[in-house]
Write a protein that binds this DNA or RNA. Structure first.
Ligand code: FES
Ligand code: FES
Lengths: 156, 156
DNA sequence: GAATAACAAGACCATTTTATCTTTTTATAA
DNA sequence: TTATAAAAAGATAAAATGGTCTTGTTATTC
């Protein structure tokens, strides 16, 4: 996006669109968790996610055991384990791939290191740590509770 | 990147590759600022940026007056104004486009707002503020000084 | 056991981002 | 004033990401 310069979504992107959809779907599963599985199509509809695209994403979550799928009539998907044992970063890593082994420098000067810090290093490093903590500390159960609260707040 | 899930660069992306190149080039200009203009090709070589691609990016920086270009033999580019009056976010906005008017929710649930916060809101909002402050508080002159320090550190 | 309803999977398509190729314009130097 | 060296510009291509279509597979219900 060089010449017309109009990208509104790239700034401060924490994960891909695919991962975003994955998170939304997982929160939905956690929110409406029952014994009966939920249809992918109904989740897609709730969050305005293209159905086929979400189905693809779900496939990779199934492979990573974050979701259990049941085929056939009355089939659908459920969480792979208890909602309070699933953390955001697991979902992101499953969809976007694992984080790089060496940290990436904020302004792309080789790798990030304390020994040869780039000009942003001392400010960026703690921020990056905060982001990681945010994504590692929240389990799905809590997230779902707060989404429910949000809904109640909006509907009263 | 859904099925093979292997994206190593997307996590915590602050700006596009184009913007990253732009920042590197601007820091370089600031670092080696003289009366004589610097050739785009020499900057491209220093930072391993594809020359033609950087040339395109420079064109938009010229339009935004962040860079002044001089054509013809012995031509090249220079900073559009004093290095200490150029801030990182200007470069990013010029290349990636301006930030969205409404903040974007970290997990894509409508827009971000204090009234209907998503589960990540209370953690994400201050982080986002920190990032913005980081990008708004650093001017090119300081950045260049610290790059020079880094180089000295590595070469002694 | 046939019809149906769900996920699985692979091929395909679209858009955006990144990169390259080619030609044009401009200024300098000889 | 001609050759040269630089940026400007436009067309094109490649790669990554996001999205769609079609067919297969599996389980349920009747
Ligand atoms: S060295 Fe650049 S962010 Fe750490
Ligand atoms: S509402 Fe989601 S980040 Fe603010």
């Amino acid at each position: 996006m060089v010449s017309s310069g109009n990208n509104y979504n790239i700034q401060f992107m924490l994960y891909s669109k695919s991962a975003e959809y994955a998170i939304q779907a997982m929160i939905h599963l956690s929110e409406f968790q029952t014994d009966k599985p939920t249809m992918i199509s109904s989740i897609a509809k709730s969050y305005d996610i293209p159905y086929q695209f979400l189905a693809k994403i779900v496939q990779t979550l199934v492979k990573r055991r974050l979701i259990i799928a049941k085929r056939g009539r009355n089939g659908g998907i459920n969480l792979g384990r208890d909602a309070k044992d699933i953390y955001l970063h697991e979902i992101i890593d499953a969809v976007d791939g694992p984080p790089p082994e060496k940290d990436i420098c904020a302004i792309g000067l080789d790798y990030c290191s304390d020994d040869a810090p780039c000009p942003l290093h001392h400010k960026w490093k703690p921020i990056r740590k905060n982001i990681r903590e945010m994504l590692s500390s929240e389990n799905l159960e809590e997230l779902a509770h707060r989404v429910i609260e949000k809904r109640e707040l909006m509907n009263k």
